[in-house]
């Protein structure tokens, strides 16, 4: 149990998938101009990540890992090199289904998220979480916590960024630094803030 809590806290703060592993930057920079859309996308990412990471765990451990096909009588087969292509296909499928569900039940959110929902497919944070899950060989319970935690961490970071950007609209920033450069430096400062949790151990 303690182990699970520590994975959860770590994936939200110190090992934040955006701020310390740099994943999901593209949509993070594109959507963080508007607080409402940022929050919407953040929630969508939590949802997709909490769903796809465990599903990918099942795919990997039941089909791809070395020796995983023992139940089918093929213990010496190792298909783990196929993980990239199967993971991304599975993520694309779940995002597609999610898009149809949101379109059907919440048209307002659908228009708000606009083009960014399909972009979740190429959000590296989602694929990244699945790959880290394999690399760190988490158990199923740990994967559940890790997926939800990473999504929450990403959501927190993008909301913080959108709020800061809103305030910065009135700041006098040097011409060359406006836009991308400024966002990167602000993100760096947020990252320093999140790193302060490094001392917290549970």
């Amino acid at each position: 149990m303690e182990n699970l809590i520590s994975i959860g806290v770590n994936s939200i703060f110190v090992g934040n998938i955006l701020l310390s592993y740099f994943l999901g930057m593209c949509s993070f920079l594109a959507v963080s101009r508007n607080l409402k859309t940022a929050a919407g996308l953040g929630v969508a990412v939590i949802f997709v990540m909490a769903l796809t990471t465990p599903v990918n765990w099942l795919i990997y451990n039941l089909l791809l890992a070395p020796g995983a096909l023992a139940w089918a009588g093929l213990p010496e087969i190792n298909l783990s090199f196929l993980k990239l292509i199967l993971f991304i296909a599975q993520i694309a499928a779940i995002v597609q289904v999610l898009e149809m569900v949101i379109d059907r039940y919440s048209p307002a959110l659908y228009t708000g998220l606009g083009v960014y929902l399909p972009l979740i497919t190429v959000n590296c944070a989602i694929l990244g979480a699945s790959l880290f899950m394999v690399e760190r060989s988490y158990t199923f319970a740990e994967t559940l916590v890790y997926g939800a935690g990473s999504g929450t961490g990403w959501c927190l970071a993008i909301i913080a960024m959108a709020a800061i950007q809103k305030k910065l609209r009135y700041a006098d920033v040097p011409a060359g630094l406006q836009g991308f450069g400024q966002s990167m430096i602000v993100t760096g400062l947020i990252a320093i803030g999140f790193m302060l949790f490094a001392g917290v151990s549970i």
Binding site: S20, A175, G176, L177, Q182, M184, I185, M195
Partner: peptide, 22 residues
Amino acid sequence: VLAPGAFIMIGLFVWLEHTLLE
């Protein structure tokens, strides 16, 4: 070497590049 350094460094890098281009 830490993560925040990467953000800040690339921010400054882009600043330099934009200024030179302008």
